[in-house]
């Protein structure tokens, strides 16, 4: 590769370069594929130092939560919902994907300050890697959910072929946008991390993860529209528990995913050139 011909003009933000927008070259595509792969592999190796135990650990958290709510609502409060444990884990695994992404997003840029200060690369790669990592975790927890389904005599249907990828794509887009937003804003307002922890905690109870949405009093139904995670969680519960995905909620989830993606990317794009100054 003739690196000497690599001419870079560093100009003030806002000034358009003479060359204008260019498609990434083949070398660049290979490079960013490698960068993503090595970043995801890093997280993965660190998390699963010894494979079998590591896998069990990553499932333990949502399963422990499911157990707590099962005891609380099914045994203590005598909540009457058939196959309640399946209902719980069908909502809790997707929820953990969301909340883990939000938590790790706080440090996606902040935790790589020395790289951001010195090396030039697309910073969004760091966020993309952490979101991809959580996606992998979610994917390997799907067999557990299916196991619970089979225990209750329910089986994946043909519609899984399109609904599963569609929901994964929607959730991926939504978490990526959110993570980009949080990772960026947390560089400028360092206390966002505390705030986002509290908000996620509140949203966990607002979102119908541990109770069916029909239990919401009618004058509280608007919450399902206002909470970005509610439609998505309802879709997952539809897939894993009810047997069919509600179309209107899927459309709403897609809309929210688009909004999150656009807002996250715009904020990132507007502030990315200042990262090295502020980090």
């Amino acid at each position: 590769m003739d690196a000497c011909s690599q001419l870079i003009e560093n100009t003030p933000p806002g000034a358009r370069s003479a060359a204008g927008w260019q498609w990434p070259s083949r070398e660049q595509l290979i490079y960013y594929r490698d960068l993503l792969a090595v970043l995801v592999a890093k997280e993965f190796k660190v998390r699963y130092k010894s494979t079998v135990i590591g896998y069990a650990w990553s499932l333990m958290h949502p399963l422990a939560f499911a157990l707590v709510f099962f005891v609380l609502f099914k045994i203590v409060m005598r909540f009457d919902l058939p196959a309640y444990s399946l209902f719980l884990i069908g909502g809790l695994f997707p929820w953990h994907w969301i909340s883990n992404t939000v938590t790790s997003a706080n440090f996606a840029f902040l935790g790589n300050s020395s790289l951001i200060k010195k090396v030039r690369f697309h910073r969004a790669t760091l966020v993309l890697a952490s979101v991809l990592n959580e996606l992998v975790h979610f994917a390997i927890s799907i067999p557990i959910v299916v196991g619970f389904m089979i225990y209750y005599g329910r089986y994946p249907t043909v519609s899984w072929f399109w609904w599963l990828p569609a929901l994964v794509v929607m959730q991926f887009a939504m978490t990526f946008g959110l993570a980009l937003l949080i990772a960026t804003v947390n560089l400028f307002f360092r206390d966002l991390e505390r705030l986002s922890t509290i908000i996620m905690h509140l949203l966990f109870y607002v979102t119908p993860v541990i109770y069916p949405y029909e239990k919401l009093p009618p004058n509280f139904r608007w919450v399902l529209m206002a909470d970005p995670f509610a439609p998505l969680v309802l879709c997952w519960q539809g897939l894993f528990y009810r047997g069919s995905v509600p179309g209107e909620f899927a459309a709403l989830a897609a809309l929210w995913a688009l909004v999150c993606c656009l807002v996250g990317y715009r904020v990132y794009q507007a502030l990315v050139w200042r990262f090295a100054e502020i980090v």
């Binding site: 690599q6 001419l7 870079i8 560093n10 933000p13 020395s114 010195k118 090396v119 030039r120």
Partner: peptide, 23 residues
Amino acid sequence: IAGVLRPSAGTVVTRGRICPLLE
């Protein structure tokens, strides 16, 4: 030079692969 900061005015032109030594 590394291209991690953007100038407020003026231009920095670099030719070739840049490698920073990290902390």
